[in-house]
Design a protein around this nucleic acid. Structure first.
Lengths: 213, 213
DNA sequence: CTTGAATAGTCATATCCTTGACTATGAAGG
DNA sequence: CCTTCATAGTCAAGGATATGACTATTCAAG
């Protein structure tokens, strides 16, 4: 149940419609959480039922009527409670890592292509995050903004997003270079003896019998 | 359906029991994926039913009987297919980021504590990953190992884990310092005017009527 | 004049993941 | 002797997330 808090946190910076939220939680700008529109509309409905957010209908001339949501006092209290509670650790969970883990046993060509593609995507996100950060701090330098500016929360999460994508890009480029070199040198695998040490803890238990099931 | 491929990838480096897999996918060493024991046992059962892995029973003297699993040819084919298919982008999804996003509106004390705690956890993981990497490359230098070593996949994913945790640590320490300074300076918030630009795209649509729902 | 993108929002289904239990045995520590 | 840890595995239930489709209107480009 963390999406609800992510929604509350996102709504702190002003009223947003479900559609606007959906864009904020989209692939492009999801610097602190990601969710699909369906999830967000459902979560907004739940949050409204529980009185943590309130919506106000806005009839527009040219666009469909929308509802703008804001956090209620109860919502703020809930967010406060959440912020003080223990956080569970987070993990990377990425298709690409699984593929790289299997790099020695699968065709290198498609893998290299994907890693390079990912590097380009990371680069695009880096540019985006840099623009967003510049806009947020206005004319100020970063240090000055972080000392004196109001509402630094979104800036700080965006910094994490930026660093993450920089890490992504650097890693992807390095992997691509390594895989290229290796597939050029010896397409049959490495040259060093393949001992099994280090990867999995070697089973030290005495194995008595092997029965084929 | 990526857990199944993560399991296949993990089993490439030798036979493992469900229990050993569970430890590998645990909080500590999950450098490329994370899953709980229940998931893994269930996934292993599915994979075996579909013939992508095969298990062999091993009766032990002192320990309970276990089943060691290995990837079949069909499993390798499936992994190959997966590796060549497009990867979906990955996202950070972290409680702590949500809390930092709301940093301007919640009590700074608990937040600072949590960020520093996370930095310490990251540091511990960094140490762990460094040890694992050293063990994997044996006596060789990194560049040499990556050029000539066999089975570099696990090494490469571990490198990503290391970089990720370093990024985590650096970011957490920075956040802690910033929040400390700010809460010492002005506990009421920032001093700069709170314009709303830059955070969310300002609604440019002409709002005609506001009807309280 | 029609196609496509953007705005605004919803439904159903299916899979994935987490929480919280529970059974057993053997080894090590106090 | 008793407790705790490590090994090895399983069940049930519910919450979270993803996939795919669907309604409607407006604006801009071809």
């Amino acid at each position: 149940m963390a999406l609800r808090h992510a929604v509350l946190a996102a709504l702190l910076d002003g009223e947003l419609s479900g559609y606007q939220l959906a864009k904020a939680f989209d692939v492009g700008v999801a610097n602190f959480w990601h969710a699909l529109p369906q999830q967000l509309y459902a979560e907004l409905a739940r949050l409204e039922r529980e009185g943590l957010v309130a919506g106000r209908q806005v009839v527009q001339e040219t666009r469909p009527t929308k509802r703008l949501f804001h956090v209620t006092d109860a919502g703020l209290t809930e967010l406060e409670r959440f912020a003080a509670a223990a956080s569970k650790p987070s993990f990377i969970r990425d298709d690409l890592l699984v593929k790289v883990q299997a790099a020695d046993h699968v065709d290198a060509g498609p893998l290299i292509r994907q890693v390079e593609e990912r590097a380009a995507m990371a680069e695009a996100k880096i540019d985006l995050f840099r623009r967003i950060l510049r806009k947020m701090r206005g004319g100020l330098g970063e240090e000055e903004f972080l000392r004196t500016g109001g509402r630094v929360g979104p800036y700080l999460t965006c910094l994490r997003g930026l660093a993450f994508e920089e890490g992504n890009r650097d890693w992807c480029l390095r992997i691509a270079a390594i895989l290229r070199e290796r597939s050029a040198a010896g397409p049959g695998g490495g040259t060093t003896a393949m001992t099994r040490e280090g990867t999995a803890p070697a089973p030290r238990n005495p194995e008595v019998a092997h029965a084929e099931r």
